[in-house]
Every structure is written in C-alpha cells, then in structure tokens.
Amino acid sequence: MLDACAQLLDEIGYDALTTTRIAERAGVAIGSVYQFFPDKRAIAQALTQRNLEVFVSRVGQRFITEEYAGWWAAVDAIIDEYVHMLRHVPGFRSLRFGDVVDVHLLDPAADNNAVISGRLRGLLLSEFGLADSDELDRAVVVAVEAADAVLKLAFRRDPEGDAEIVAEAKKLVRGYLSSQLS
C-alpha cells in the first residue's frame, strides 16, 4: 500500500490522492486499507516515516563505508543522499519529509525539519565527535532549514535538481556550519 501511495503521489499529487485510488493501485480491497490506515494522511505519514528511515539508513551506511576528511564532507554526502532520494525514490519528491501534508507529520511536538535535524545531529555527533551543545543544535537546525529551502529551489528550476543550485546549497551549508562550529 505504501508503494502504491508513493507511485500515485508522483502521478497525481497529494491533493488528488484518495484511499480508494491507493487500494485500486495496490490491488487490495478498500477495507484492507482501512484495516491499517484511517485515512490518506495516515498513509502519507507511514510513507514519510519509511522515507526518513531509508534516508537515515543510507546516510549512516555511507558514514560506515566511506572515509571523510571531516564533517564538511559528510554534510555533502547528506545533501547528496537527499538529492538522490528526490530523483529516484517514488513519492519522495511530492512528499519529502511530510511538509507537503503537515509540518508536524513526523512528530506532533516538533516540526518535520526539527526531526530531521535531530537525526542528522545524532549522526554527526557519533561520527565526528563534535561537542554536544545548544549552539550545535541551533546550527544544525538552521543548516537543515537553509538546505531545504535552497534544494526546493533547485528542484523547482529543474525536475532533476539544478546542479548549480545544489552545489550552492552545499557551499551555503558548509560555510554557515564552519562559522558556527569553529
């Protein structure tokens, strides 16, 4: 059902998405959809959670298998994974991390980018031994918000993501974090 939802998001968008369409695409009875999900928002939420886990897992795997000169190279890898998902993961470009549906889709107490920031902050702390602080927390939140805005611009300009704008997002985030983490 989540795969059917993702495919439909790419084809028709969230506003036209219905549980009936999801059931038809998944080849299941509508009752089966409602057995697991009360509405299309709940399905989108489950898909967003799955995408978040895929993203964090892919970034974590890169951290394990690749050597980075420093945290700045890891930031590039994080942005590269996000761009890869926007280009290749069904439904991700339409849904992203749920901001299209609800800025609190991942967690009712925190906005979606704050959830992403927390997960990325944890990866950076565990991999690069940065000092844990309120300043680091704030810097990662601002960096995620800035990257999100600039990457949205890149994909508005080009369906595959304007490579020059993606490069500018990396420079912006690296420059900002460098000024905050020194």
Rank of each mutant, 00 (worst) to 15 (best):
L2K: 13
D3M: 04
D3N: 13
A4I: 09
A6V: 12
Q7T: 15
L8Q: 15
D10A: 13
D10V: 12
D15C: 12
A16N: 05
A16E: 15
T20Q: 11
T20V: 05
R21N: 00
A26W: 01
S32D: 05
S32A: 09
Q35L: 14
A42I: 05
A42M: 09
A42G: 09
A44Q: 11
Q45K: 13
A46N: 04
T48A: 10
N51D: 15
N51E: 15
V54S: 07
V54I: 15
V56C: 02
R62W: 00
F63R: 15
I64N: 09
T65W: 11
E66A: 13
Y68T: 08
A69H: 02
G70K: 01
D76Q: 07
A77Q: 15
E81M: 07
E81L: 04
E81A: 05
R87L: 11
H88K: 02
V89L: 14
F92A: 05
S94Y: 10
F97R: 12
F97C: 06
V100C: 03
V103K: 14
H104S: 04
D111N: 14
N113E: 03
S117P: 07
G118C: 02
R119K: 15
L120C: 09
G122F: 03
G122N: 03
L123E: 00
L124W: 13
S126R: 11
E127D: 06
F128D: 00
F128S: 00
A131L: 08
D132Y: 02
D134H: 03
D134Y: 06
D134E: 10
L136H: 01
R138I: 09
R138F: 05
A139N: 00
A139E: 00
V140C: 02
V141S: 07
V141P: 00
A147S: 15
V150L: 11
F155E: 02
P159Q: 08
P159N: 15
D162F: 04
D162Q: 06
I165E: 11
V166P: 02
V166N: 01
A167W: 06
A169K: 01
K171T: 08
K171Q: 02
G175N: 10
Y176M: 10
Y176S: 09
S178D: 07
Q180M: 13
Q180L: 10
